[in-house]
């Protein structure tokens, strides 16, 4: 039995596990459905972010960390993603158009 000072979080973990599997299943179903490319990419990226949040927040206990660590990890990685995206995607698209002559 759980001691009073350390209550078990097992319920949260199994729910997280079930949610992760459910989101993965949705992603596979969406991938097989006839969606437009833009919509598909959007849905998959949102689902990916949800899964990442579930793992980091519940399994890695990021939700219960000091707020300084939470903001460093979340904002730091988000800023990195935006910077890489803004620098690289337009350039890659430019080269793509140059090569394919569009």
């Amino acid at each position: 039995m759980a001691q009073a000072s350390h209550t078990s979080h097992a319920r949260v973990y199994w729910l997280t596990w079930a949610a992760l599997l459910a989101v993965t299943l949705v992603m596979l179903l969406v991938d097989g459905a006839e969606l437009s490319r833009g919509l598909l990419v959007t849905v998959l990226l949102v689902a990916m972010a949800v899964k990442a949040g579930l793992i980091a927040g519940n399994f890695m206990h990021l939700r219960h960390e000091r707020s300084g660590i939470i903001w460093t990890v979340v904002l730091g990685l988000f800023a990195l993603g935006v910077i890489l995206w803004a620098l690289m995607v337009p350039d890659a698209a430019r080269i793509h158009d140059m090569v394919t002559g569009r």
Partner: peptide, 28 residues
Amino acid sequence: MWWFIVTDGLLFAGFLASYGYARILSDN
């Protein structure tokens, strides 16, 4: 531990970014 995880995450972020770059500019 979080500092290690963030720096190790940067390794994969670099891989994923260069993969995205290569994929977008490729037409096949």
